[in-house]
Simulated scan of single mutants.
Amino acid sequence: MFDYTIKDNCLINKVILVTGAGSGIGRQAALTYANLGATVILLGKTVSKLEQVYDEILANGGTEPAIIPLDLKGATQQHYIDMSNTIAQQFGRLDGALLNASMLGELTPYTHIHQQIWDDIVQVNITAQHLLAQALIPTLLKAESASLVFTTSSVGSKGRAYWGAYSVSKFATEGLTQVIADEYDETGLRVNAINPGATATPMRATAYPAEDQSTLASPEDIMPLYVYLMADESQSTTGQIIKAQ
């Protein structure tokens, strides 16, 4: 998978949902999937950013995407269920879902973590991911072979000082990945998580404001793994936590 060569049209006719599609890695993944033939469903909280990605996909000759404006911090279980049902009605199935959106919060000593920030990170990075997966799985199972991809971090496998709630949330993400993968191991649904590594994104800039982002991998640089996990070649890969770099 690490020397995976992206083939033209390898995602042709696939329907793929991308959360956090308005910026950073989610934006690049949406553009890449569309360029490879997929119909992309763009989910994010900022409509103007989603519209920019929508316009760019069309300008590149891609299939018209769908837009779902949704803030994971305030969305309820019913929102996700309704969304999944709408996808099933409109497209008949879902071939892939990249659950990329997450919240960093603030880097602070553990005893200084503000309760509201803790609650917000748990809501966005754990509860929303769980509810999304729970709602999407029935629609993913309508596809002959489907891929559910979570997003983790290096601080999700080894705790790091001052990363508090975000680190804990990514440990939970890895656990969620493994539980669902094991439960659906005998089906056509594969479940994995990507650790993108140090990548030049707005979230990374917030965490490391003094860092020179030109020294980092770009979102485009790490796309081979993101494509591999949505392509048919990864059908036997499940339950894995995979580093993109």
Rank of each mutant, 00 (worst) to 15 (best):
Q235M: 12
T76G: 04
Q115N: 13
I137H: 10
T201E: 00
Y33E: 06
T111L: 14
N9H: 14
E186F: 08
L225M: 11
A181V: 08
D95C: 05
S214R: 12
E233F: 05
A231Q: 08
A128Y: 09
T199E: 11
G188P: 00
S218G: 07
S234N: 03
A21M: 01
S102H: 07
T86R: 14
L98S: 09
E174Y: 02
G22Q: 08
G159R: 03
Q240W: 03
P219Y: 07
M83C: 09
Y54P: 04
A88T: 01
N125L: 08
E56M: 11
V168C: 13
S145E: 13
L99H: 06
E233Q: 15
D71G: 09
G74P: 00
E220R: 10
T187D: 03
G96C: 03
V227S: 04
N85W: 00
G197W: 00
I117F: 05
Q78I: 12
T39G: 01
V122N: 13
S214V: 05
M83Y: 12
M1Q: 13
K142F: 07
L98R: 02
N60Q: 14
L50F: 11
Q90R: 10
R27L: 10
T127C: 02
P196R: 04
L148P: 10
Q235N: 15
N13G: 06
A133P: 09
E211G: 02
